[in-house]
């Protein structure tokens, strides 16, 4: 069958008519298949939600037990019939529980990548390429400028700064799902074993990662009364980026503002946000990963969604690969 009839964009999100479900819908729907737990992909208020066990757990943590009426756990690699189609979930390497969703009917297979990355991440399963007719790829960092460096080098920058400025608190802005835990895990791998202080918004998700066997070491709440200000000197404090512009940040001595994000590659972006130490660490594919993935999967066609669609479409055209933008709305650029 024609792929355009198997899956097509609607204002509520990508819709599969034959299966009667949406993938990562941005408005409440009857039946939703969710790629991963980030708020712009996983929203509360659907009736029936199918996702990996981890994604369901994360949604429960974020939205409470009543985030939907009924759930269905997706086992990675298992094929589940839904209406007239078959769906399967495959690791996406983005955050804990993240999955690509393959939708298949009458010999046509479309893979929806969700958000994905190709490099090693100690906090989640690695991306698995799935052969398909249409690959729907994200393009958050879909411009040839994005070459994200090795994350070990970025962690080393932070460790160097801690030695250079032992009197200052190092405030690391990192998204509370995925990025924060990955930064902490990478710091532990690099041999940093001092306590790491976390903002309250991270506590439950960090506990959850621990319970899933992802060791994060000694984590402590970054809540100490004002008289104890000096105790954060030389400490690493991880919190959601929004918190650092907040009154919350006033408790720390002479903080070094740090932001861990793929956007930090562009100097003006770092400068605008008042970031002193940019850490270029992304949970999305950079440009070489995006094009290598397309080259590896060799889909008949590429559809490009959320991000900088035009450059990736152009690249596909230059390679002789059919490609078009999907113009889905409602998904954030990470960090914006």
């Amino acid at each position: 069958m024609k792929p355009e009839t198997l899956l097509y964009p609607t204002p509520k999100g990508l819709y599969c008519e034959k299966g009667g479900f949406y993938i990562d819908p941005v408005q409440p729907v009857e039946r939703a298949l969710i790629t991963h737990g980030h708020a712009d992909h996983a929203r509360a208020g659907h009736s029936h939600v199918m996702a990996t066990r981890e994604t369901l757990d994360i949604m429960r943590i974020r939205y409470g037990d009543a985030f939907c009426t009924s759930t269905q756990e997706a086992i990675l690699g298992a094929r589940t019939p839904i209406g007239d189609i078959t769906a399967s979930f495959h690791p996406a390497g983005h955050v804990l529980g993240s999955a690509q969703i393959a939708v298949e009917a009458n010999g046509t297979r479309i893979v929806v990548s969700g958000d994905y990355k190709r490099r090693r991440d100690p906090t989640c399963l690695a991306f698995e390429p799935v052969p398909c007719d249409v690959f729907i790829t994200e393009a958050t960092f879909g411009l040839p400028v994005f070459h994200h460096p090795d994350d070990r080098g970025e962690i080393a920058k932070l460790l160097t700064s801690l030695k250079q400025f032992p009197e200052r608190a190092h405030l690391v802005g990192a998204y509370s799902l995925g990025k924060a835990q990955r930064i902490i895990a990478l710091m532990r791998e690099a041999g940093y074993d001092a306590p790491i202080f976390i903002h309250g918004a991270l506590a439950r998700l960090c506990d959850y990662y621990e319970s899933e066997g992802i060791g994060l070491g000694d984590l402590r709440p970054a809540t100490i009364d004002a008289s104890d200000k000096q105790s954060f000197a030389g400490a690493v404090v991880v919190g959601p980026p929004s918190a650092f512009a907040d009154k919350w940040a006033r408790r720390f001595p002479d903080p070094v503002p740090i932001f861990a994000s793929g956007w930090m590659l562009v100097r003006q972006r770092a400068k605008q946000r008042g970031v002193e130490l940019p850490m270029i660490i992304s949970d999305h594919s950079d440009w070489p990963e995006l094009i290598a993935t397309i080259g590896e999967i060799k889909p008949g066609e590429v559809w490009v969604t959320h991000g900088r669609e035009e450059a990736l479409v152009r690249w596909c055209q230059l390679q002789g690969i059919a490609a078009r933008p999907l113009h889905l709305v409602g998904y954030d650029d990470e960090g914006e």
């Binding site: 400028v145 994005f146 070459h147 562009v266 003006q268 900088r308």
Partner: peptide, 26 residues
């Protein structure tokens, strides 16, 4: 080394020639 259109998208985004080239160079 690079397609002109892709370079233009990149330059428009970054806004600084030296920085754009340093980032896109492979």
């Amino acid at each position: 080394r690079m397609d002109e259109v892709l370079f233009r998208y990149s330059y428009d985004y970054v806004g600084d020639l030296a920085e754009t080239i340093s980032l896109v160079w492979e």
